[in-house]
Amino acid sequence: MAEMTYLEAIRQGLAEEMARDERVYAIGEDIGAYGGAFKVTEGLLERFGAERVIGTPISETAIIGAAIGSAYLGMRPVAELQFIDFVACCFNILTNFAAKSRYRWGAGVPMVVRGPCGGGVSGGPFHSANPEAHFLHTPGLKIVEPSTAYDAKGLIKAAIRDDDPVLFLEHKFLYRRVKDEVPDADYVVPIGQAVVRRPGDDVTVVTFGAMTYTALEAAEQLAQRDVEVEVIDLRTLSPLDHETVLQSVAKTNKVVVLHEAQRTGGIGAEIAAAITERGFEHLDAPPVRLASLDTPVPYNPGLEAAFRPGVEQIVAAVGQLVEY
């Protein structure tokens, strides 16, 4: 057991898998000698060699294409996108080739596409994306986004071992800000399982990634007013763990769905719809969505703060639900 950052946990998970299984390799831009833009792959080149830590041209489609082809040959590629925003550059090959492969002809594509997502760091319109909604609508692709170092390691290992393509979203705000105890032992956090980060009886807040911490902070404030918020960290965004959410809603009967991506057509809409469809008779109030505004992510810190949901909005939304 050692305390480490979210970033170190991803690196350790990746390195452990590469050591455990020679089919696992890393591919992406600047991931070799430089160690990646955020240094997630630092040290891997020295340890595993250029054969298994492959730096590429600026060619996102080639990176994913190479990952797909090698996966067909039995490899387990872990492709890094320098910022997850650039997943747009390989959207076609990821969604049309990788994600549909198993359904079309039974050929699985066991690969991980990982990259830093999320804002709060003044990354501006092209370095702050939370693209999960684009891929939630892509059957055949799994999506995970850890919020703790423990989960980061456990989920990267699970993603690498998964027989299907997994989009692994790493929230860059958490890379070095989050630190927790990570076991030395080999473990995985199963894909498809949400977790209750804080139990409460009054209102459920469903969230993930960095917003988990925002929600927990709001929950702390609300507890001062005797409002007990249950915070659910989804961890896996596709396939969604509806059961955990519905069980919580069955208890609290009121729910806020919180995410950092833009509101319209966001994952919150899907969760709210599922709760309404499957848990209608557990609801004592309409599900509430809290998300970012329907604009590109702005650069200026003040603008970005106004763009994203924060503690205040959560406290207000929960307060309204309590009064409802």
Binding site: I54, S59, T61, A62, I64, G65, A66, A67, I68, G69, S70, A71, Y72, L73, G74, M75, I93, F97
Partner: peptide, 11 residues
């Protein structure tokens, strides 16, 4: 083309 490059890489 990139996928078959990947097949070559995997091989």
């Amino acid at each position: 083309v990139p996928v078959m490059a990947g097949v070559g890489l995997g091989a």
